[in-house]
Amino acid sequence: MNTDIILTCAVTGAGDTPPKNPNVPVTPRAIADDCVAAARAGASIAHVHVRDPETGAHRHDTAYFAEIVDRVRDSDTDIVLNFTAGGGGDLIPELIGTADDDRQIRAAAGSDLQTPSERHAPIGELLPEICTLDCGSLNFGNAVYLNTADWLREHAALVRDAGVKPELECFDLGHVWFARQLIDEGLIAGDPLFQLCLGIPWGAEADPATLLAMRDKLPVNAHWAAFAIGRMQMPMVAQAMIAGGHCRVGLEDNLYLSRGVKADNAELVAKAVDIIQALGGDVATPAATRETLGLRGAP
């Protein structure tokens, strides 16, 4: 069991969740405020997506990330910032044409596709301490999250050369396998950091057997965390800790504090802290997190 827990709060995500819970932050100001609130509730890391302030839709704009950084730092509240670099992989395939020899597949409305260099743009300019690297493709609901092997190699090299710590997000066992390949090819610097992402249809299921199967495939020098979505979020806090890992909560993954009770990010962090402490552990400070993970600026 791990008793020194790095606790991440994923504050907003990319899904169409603001209509379902008004506490999901949308504007850069609101996202920054939730990063600060999560830190004050005990979180070590804030995982950050950005959204269109008018529509709430997922965006990639460097200016929005920069505003969040400035607001968090101006608050004098310390928290490690982890930017998503996984946007721009959403493919909704559409079949056009009628005859067998005339049919084509194209990206339908709602698709959001970027090259590795486009995904990396906010990271390369702002140099957060951590950014995500989603380690494969996935049937994501009725869409496809698209991330080919060569795209991942290119993206991993960009992150490595920027000196940012990649969080290797793995949604299935094959993603862990390919992350190990990136390590073997020298594309991941230092001790790797993994995030095991459970319960997303149609990836790895959110249960102890799947968690342990993925954990057992990690390199011996890996730091790792795990999370589950929806009602399995808090059970996975306990399961990840008992299995030797770190933990993640937040409105990106779950909108409820309990059945029918809509949460905010600080409440989810506080509930996770209670679970961690009840199991005999404690949550790492941002400073201790930097030292453990070997982040830029660590002593």
Results as ranks from 00 to 15, higher is better:
G174S: 06
G136F: 13
V176T: 04
A206N: 00
A206H: 00
N139E: 04
H155D: 12
W202M: 11
A213D: 15
I130K: 04
R103V: 14
L133A: 09
G174Q: 05
C131D: 03
P192G: 15
R106F: 10
G86F: 08
F178P: 02
G190Y: 09
L173G: 10
K165R: 15
Q195P: 01
L211V: 03
I92S: 07
D100C: 01
N142M: 11
T132A: 08
Q181R: 13
N139T: 11
A121F: 06
I123W: 04
L187C: 10
G97T: 13
F140Q: 11
G174W: 09
A213L: 13
V80W: 04
N139F: 02
L173P: 02
D191H: 15
A162R: 06
C170W: 10
F83Q: 03
P122A: 05
P128C: 09
P93H: 11
A121W: 00
R180Y: 03
T132L: 06
Y145C: 13
V176N: 09
G174D: 09
L158W: 00
L196I: 15
W202Q: 14
A213P: 02
Q195F: 07
W151H: 08
G199L: 07
L81W: 01
D172T: 04
G89H: 09
S75L: 04
A213V: 08
G141F: 07
K165T: 08
P116T: 01
R106L: 12
D90G: 01
I79Q: 01
D100R: 15
H120L: 14
L158C: 04
L81I: 02
A143T: 11
L198W: 01
W151M: 15
G86K: 09
P201V: 07
Q181Y: 11
I200C: 01
Q114C: 10
F178W: 12
L127W: 02
R73F: 05
P93L: 06
L211G: 04
T148D: 13
E185W: 10
L126F: 06
G190Q: 05
D78W: 01
G190I: 11
A108H: 09
S137G: 14
D100G: 00
L91A: 12
S111P: 08
E118Q: 12
G199I: 00
P192K: 03
L211S: 02
R73L: 00
G97V: 11
R73G: 02
G163T: 13
A121K: 14
A107G: 14
